[in-house]
Design a protein around this nucleic acid. Sequence first.
RNA 1: CGGGGUGUGGCUCAGCUUGGUAGAGCGCUUGGUUCGGGACUAAGAGGUCGAAGGUUCAAAUCCUUUCACCCCGACCA
Length: 480
Amino acid sequence: MGNNKDFVKEITPMEVDFPRWYTDVILKNELVDYSPVKGFMVIRPYGYALWEGIQAFADEKFKATGHKNMYFPLLIPESLLNKEKEHVDGFAPEVAWVTHGGSEELAERLCIRPTSETIICHMYSKWLNSYRDLPYLYNQWCSVVRWEKTTRPFLRTSEFLWQEGHTLHETYDEAQEETLKMLDIYRQVAEDLLAMPVVVGKKSDKEKFAGAESTYTMEALMHDGQALQAGTSHNLGQHFTKAFDIKYLGRDNKEHYPYHTSWGISTRLIGGLIMVHGDNRGLVLPPRIAPVQAVIIPIAMKKAGVIEKAEELFMAMKEKGIRVELDDDTKESPGWKFNQYEMKGYPIRIEIGPRDIENNQAMVVRRDTLEKEVVSFDGFAGKIKVILESMQGDMLKKALKHREENTHTITNYEDYKSSNEAKNGFTKAMWCGCRECEDNLKQETGASIRCIPFEQEKLSDKCHFCDKEAKHMVYIARAY
RNA sequence: CGGGGUGUGGCUCAGCUUGGUAGAGCGCUUGGUUCGGGACUAAGAGGUCGAAGGUUCAAAUCCUUUCACCCCGACCA
């Protein structure tokens, strides 16, 4: 009962039941709550703050690379959705339809956007005239709806918040460059902001976006050994621009179809953040994304000088730009607060009591390692800043180490099929590139080809699944 | 859509087998004492037992139907 210090009361240990650990963490932390409609989640303030952090970081990078934000409507007429065949085939099974306006049945039903290529292309076709207008570099922050059968907060919900960038370019090469540039920004969001290491690469044809020429992805490994697609960037070629008749007059005074990209990251990243860093006490947030980076907990607040010193440190840290909170609530005991803030994943906790003040120091505890350290009041805020910075790097390293320890190299397919151990984590394998091998893998093991990484290694000349000549090294894993 | 599970104060659950008119712990409110790893105490507030129908003198409990949610698969960011 109370003497087990390894886990926070009411959070199921992850070794016991990982999915339950996950739901416990998000519900106890009040990141989300279930709404009356299945699959639709309420994102509560602490959860939304994480999304705002991701938005701020990504949006700044989008703007810095010349993109502007816009907003397109929620509803898309069925006729528009139907214009690109692969696209509609891919999305039709999961769109929600609006059939009535008030009590009147609509002449044409409207779909709630599952993604906005169609409506955006429709508008682009009206706007684009000349090569001088290109490139079109636009993005929108919005929510989309996909009627999912199985939903889990953040990881897969029927409605989710995301951003979708949609760009047009004069040449294929420019579009390709854009696709990879945005993927790299996503990699920065994952690695630099969320301390979540990712494998970047290309999707197989089976896994690519409906209507894309090629899809690029970043894949992260969760604590339970399953992969998570954390962001995608698509080179859409001219599939949509031709279907939507987007044309411009080129330098040669002839009409041309531009090349098109789209790219997105979503609130799913928050699920990844939780599952990469969390432990049995709850959330562990990297300092850069943490809504609160440090909390000061005064001990024995009524004793002379305690509150004053706590406030002084609070102000000093605030001035240094640290997102800091002072918990001077008298109702809860310090012990309760310690546990509470550990559950919430605040990177640093500062304990300050009469004994500390006598010694001109405070007790500083890091959330990632739970190490306690005595820090002198002299230059205190600066020292906290240094700790926060090193935590960010340490957390990325720790997650990277976990991924490396759980990345295997296939020896032969039969062994892989029969071993559950092998399926836990990423496995590198050689692949001939054919669809049949990919389908068999999925059916026989539940794992899929997550991506063809940019960083290739030659493990063998032969495909591990069929013995034909190998084309690529791929990462395979079971995925969320 | 298959397989499993759960619906009882805000939360976790007991009560159901064997019908008798609703409980505990936590949380919440107010006061006092506390405060270095989930404090103690006193007094309170709070529930048409998921919904509908049926059996019965009487239903949280038995029967029928239904709805919702969670977990595991297939589909997907």
